[in-house]
């Protein structure tokens, strides 16, 4: 089986396309509507981080997304070829504080059970996001 994938420019105007694709594949994998909303936002946040931090707002670079799913899980692998993520990338700031940033990682962690940063990439970053399907989610996918 060939898994769906998407290669897009690192331009914020393509975030809408990413959300549409995540939503569609989420439906195909039989995620619930609430789960689709969460994973769509989380993938948007991960790509936003790539545009802002890995590519420092250079809108002409590449972001590659790969999707894998089964009856049990929904996985998104996101690759870029920009600056390596800082070691503290996964350190969330406390929730509930009034600040003008740092919310994205909380929203990614809410949607996905496992965040795996692949340190073996020679150039750029590869982030694997894995969500286990909940018991009450439709399993017709």
């Amino acid at each position: 089986m060939i898994n769906p994938s998407l290669k897009i420019p690192s331009n914020p105007k393509y975030l809408r396309l990413i959300r549409a694709v995540v939503s569609t594949i989420g439906q195909m994998s039989s995620l619930s509507d609430d789960s689709i909303d969460q994973v769509m936002l989380a993938v948007d946040e991960a790509c936003t981080n790539i545009i802002r931090h890995a590519y420092n707002n250079d809108f002409n670079k590449e972001i590659i997304l790969q999707f894998n799913y089964s009856n049990d899980f929904f996985e998104v692998i996101i690759e870029d070829f920009g600056k390596k993520a800082e070691p503290d990338y996964f350190n969330c700031q406390p929730i509930g504080e009034i600040r003008t940033g740092g919310y994205g990682l909380h929203l990614i962690r809410r949607a996905f059970d496992v965040l795996n940063y692949d340190k073996t990439m020679e150039n750029g970053n590869r982030l694997k996001l894995l969500r286990y399907k909940k018991k009450d989610e439709n399993r017709n996918g």
């Binding site: 946040e45 009034i98 919310y103 994205g104 929203l107």
Partner: peptide, 16 residues
């Protein structure tokens, strides 16, 4: 129809 963290951060900045 949709707000992400950049929208939330914009509102927090405005509030401050």
């Amino acid at each position: 129809s949709y707000v992400d963290s950049s929208g939330i951060a914009t509102l927090v900045e405005a509030l401050k």
